[in-house]
């Protein structure tokens, strides 16, 4: 069985989502494992979403926002950054490899960087193997 990881990417509307669109309009090829969910700002992304994604079976979660200082809403990305580190610590405690979760800044002009990031992250998650959270949480033993 060849394992294809499923990855959920939360992208902010202004920088990263536009950057992903740019990757599209530039016809840059990247792994089809990345599934994008749009939010207005990375500041909207909260642990609940990430945890739910893992619980529902995602193998990796990618979070992208504007570069520090470039947030469309001034500082939403910093809030995202703080939650990201918080979540990392919590997930480590829950015995999860936090490499399954990644935060990167992607600007609207960085279509190429997004495509490369998508490929790179997919490869990393592929190497980590399937995430067991769904299984662990739903199997009562």
């Amino acid at each position: 069985m060849s394992y294809e990881p499923t990855i959920i990417a939360f992208l902010c509307n202004w920088c990263s989502y536009t950057g992903a669109d740019l990757a599209g309009t530039s016809r840059m090829k990247y792994a089809s494992n990345i599934n994008i969910i749009r939010v207005m700002c990375s500041g909207r992304i909260e642990p609940l979403f990430v945890l739910t994604a893992f619980r529902e079976g995602a193998d990796g979660v990618l979070i992208c926002g504007c570069h520090p200082g470039d947030c469309h809403y001034h500082e939403g990305n910093y809030k995202c950054l703080r939650r990201y580190y918080f979540l990392k610590k919590y997930l480590t405690q829950m015995g999860m490899n936090t490499e399954r979760m990644r935060l990167e800044w992607v600007s609207a002009s960085e279509g190429k960087q997004f495509a490369e990031l998508a490929d790179d992250f997919t490869e990393k998650v592929r190497n980590l193997g399937p995430c067991k959270i769904k299984e662990a949480a739903e199997t009562l033993t």
Binding site: T52, R55, K89, L91, Q93, M96, I133, A136, A137, T141
Partner: peptide, 23 residues
Amino acid sequence: PAGTFYRFSVPSSIIRRNIETSE
């Protein structure tokens, strides 16, 4: 953090249990 924020609610939380030990 896990013990602080889920002191009473680990089994009912989204990530119900330590995934490493379950693995």
